[in-house]
Design a protein around this nucleic acid. Structure first.
Length: 585
RNA sequence: GCGCCUGUAGCUCAACUGGACAGAGCACCGGCCUUCUAAGCCGGUGGUUGCAGGUUCGAGUCCUGCCAGGCGCGCCA
């Protein structure tokens, strides 16, 4: 980023603009399509309007005004583009120096410094299957948490468990009717899901089941001791199951307070809405009109149903208020799929309350719904759902088989691993395939579940990134045997003179930009995409050049420095995506 | 009917928020293991960006209208 900032400043001077505008120039800078055209480009189209001059003319003028300096070697006009060639030797030294000085924080910005960010993700429903579809919210949320924390935010990870609502009435109804203590002991959460599905199926035949479930939930909400004890037990069992999966994925939360925890604060909030004149009664229910503030035809935000039970929206409102009082967040994000209308209603209702009660901070505008695409082929009712644990197992097993198969096909064989290590590698590779698949397209893209598409180990995949990392680690093992080490002073980096080495450095320079886009757009895909390109550029370099050559120790050490920096950035990015960087595969 | 989202190579996705010839992976065809891991690399085949207009120096990207698909539309969460 520092080189880019320098270029922007030089251009700013050449244009005789005030320093403040250099940020605008920096944002406009792009990369030419190939090395022959240059290393950095400034398109002059926008300036054409402002200066009332042809863009080609502006590019030519600028080219003559740019003085070569330590980082800029030359500038040429190529049609409407001003193309810059960098001083490779100095630029390379600067980039590798920055990475060497702070490998753990290279590429970060302070965009979130001093601000709290509440991130609500995963949020599975108790007594409902934790299937592959839930991986999206869980993984997307965990990635965003790491990415935003890296950008300086103080992130609070919140798992707002779906542990309240009529669904629980169904489970309790089923338990009272068919409950089997032995089965619950043996199968825990799986058995609860069976009960839930069975009650649901019955309610399709017999509408009165729904009524009974509803009344059971009402009793729970009113504090019936017997029902409450059942609920507590079911919640504990479910949470144990979820936690196993989270631990396996290396994900943890700061809070598991679900909808039930906010229960006692819901009524007072509904009263506040009424007293402020924001909510009104309609058909026996209590609602907040939001079509006026949202400027479109949308149903009102319902806070209380005509039977007196609170709604999901009311709990979300109360919960958001509680969050604000606790944390005074700078941002409050909900990673929930395809509930745009619901969140629009909740945020708008809170916005109206903010105005009516004259809140000093209009925090509802800091609330965001991070939506994402639908996972097709995964309906619980149709029995298509695949449990996340089963997917993780399958991923691990396929990764193990794939490795054995490759070892046989390759003339060189594969690196021998200890038995325990082989299992750990299979688990890590399987997860990498799964987690990477999830972020290999932008979050709004719908996904269809397909074993063969999800569990790929070749091409643009998670294992491809791990493989590049393992190769780099292999180089360092060999370097240790040969007694070669990376260099500390940049003097001899002039040995890095090939295009492949330069392209790799150029790519390393782009890490900060990828991280910034990922954070601003709430889009981990940006990191995944960047890492794929980085690994790809590295693989090209790796195939064309030998790093370690005892007859050329100076060049070898310079290349080791480059590989060390690349591995550091790759490892940093993988960590942000929750993918384990492996030293052997 | 209304609202939100999507439509790019046979398939799965990109395209740095309006910029250089629309790029990757999979699949298919050909080449590369006596050098640090071939889960890799190099080359090839494959496109009227759903259709029709509009905005301007310039459109896959923005606007309008069609066509096709997905999700939602006050007492499910």
């Amino acid at each position: 980023m520092q080189i880019t900032a320098h270029i922007a400043q030089v251009l700013c001077n050449a244009l005789a603009w005030p320093v403040e505008r250099s940020a605008q120039i920096e944002a406009a800078l792009t990369t030419p399509p190939n090395l022959a055209l240059g290393d950095c480009a400034f398109p002059c189209f926008q300036l054409a309007k402002e200066l009332r001059l042809a863009p080609n003319r502006i590019a030519q003028d600028l080219a003559t005004k740019i003085q070569p300096d330590r980082l800029i070697a030359s500038a040429t006009a190529e049609g409407p583009y001003l193309n810059l060639f960098l001083n490779r030797r100095n630029a390379l030294g600067q980039v590798l120096g920055e990475i060497r000085e702070s490998p753990a924080t290279y590429g970060h910005t302070d965009m979130g410094r001093g601000q709290m960010l509440v991130l609500d993700f995963s949020a599975p429903n108790i007594a409902k299957p934790f299937h592959f579809g839930h991986l999206r919210s869980t993984n997307l949320g965990a990635d965003l948490a790491r990415i935003l924390a890296f950008q300086g935010w103080e992130v609070l990870r919140k798992n707002y468990l779906g542990d309240w609502g009529t669904q629980f009435g169904f489970v309790i109804y089923a338990w009272q009717k068919w409950g089997d203590e032995a089965a619950l002991e043996a199968r825990a959460i799986d058995y609860l899901v069976e009960l839930y599905v069975r009650a649901n199926r019955e309610s399709e035949q017999d509408p009165s089941v729904r009524e009974q479930a509803r009344s059971l939930f009402l009793r729970l909400e009113q504090g019936d001791a017997e029902i409450r004890a059942l609920w507590t037990r079911f919640r504990e069992l479910s949470l144990e199951g979820f936690t196993r999966t989270y631990t396996r994925l290396g994900i943890s939360f700061d809070s598991y307070d679900g909808e039930s925890a906010i229960n006692h604060k819901v009524q007072p909030v509904i009263q506040r809405f009424l007293q402020a004149g924001v909510a009104k009664e309609s058909l026996g229910a209590i609602v907040v009109e939001v079509s006026d503030v949202l400027g479109r035809d949308i149903a009102p935000c319902m806070l209380q149903k005509s039977d007196g039970a609170s709604t999901y929206a009311a709990r979300d409102c109360a919960e958001a208020i509680d969050r604000w009082e606790r944390y005074q967040f700078g941002a409050n994000l909900y990673v929930v799929s395809r509930q745009e209308d619901h969140f629009a209603q909740v945020f708008a209702a809170l916005g109206k309350l903010a105005v009516a009660e004259k809140w000093p901070v209009n925090w509802p505008s800091r609330c965001e719904n991070i939506s994402f695409g639908y996972v097709r082929g995964m309906s619980t009712r149709k029995g298509e759902a695949v449990w996340l644990e089963a997917v993780l197992d399958e991923a691990r097993d396929r990764a193990g088989r794939f490795r054995a198969q490759r070892a046989e096909a390759s003339a060189r064989g594969a690196i021998a691993l200890a038995a325990g290590e082989a299992d750990a590698v299979s688990e890590a590779v399987g997860q990498a395939a799964l987690l990477y698949f999830d972020v290999s397209s932008r979050r709004m893209t719908d996904l269809s579940f397909d074993w063969d598409a999800v569990l790929q180990f070749e091409g643009n995949t998670g294992p491809y990134l791990q493989y590049a990392h393992a190769r780099m680690s292999g180089i360092f093992r060999k370097a240790g045997e040969l007694g070669l080490t990376a260099i500390d002073e940049p003097g001899d980096l002039a040995m890095l003179g090939t295009d492949e080495e330069w392209l790799l450095v150029q790519k390393l320079r782009g890490y900060a930009g990828a991280l910034r886009r990922a954070a601003e757009l709430r889009e981990p895909f940006e990191v995944a995409h960047y890492l794929y390109e980085l690994a790809s550029v590295f693989n090209t370099f790796y195939n064309r050049h030998v790093v370690l050559d005892v007859t050329e120790p100076v060049r070898s050490r310079a290349r080791l420095t480059l590989v060390k920096a690349t591995r550091s950035v790759l490892r940093s990015g993988l960590q942000l995506l929750g993918i384990r960087a492996l030293d052997h595969m």
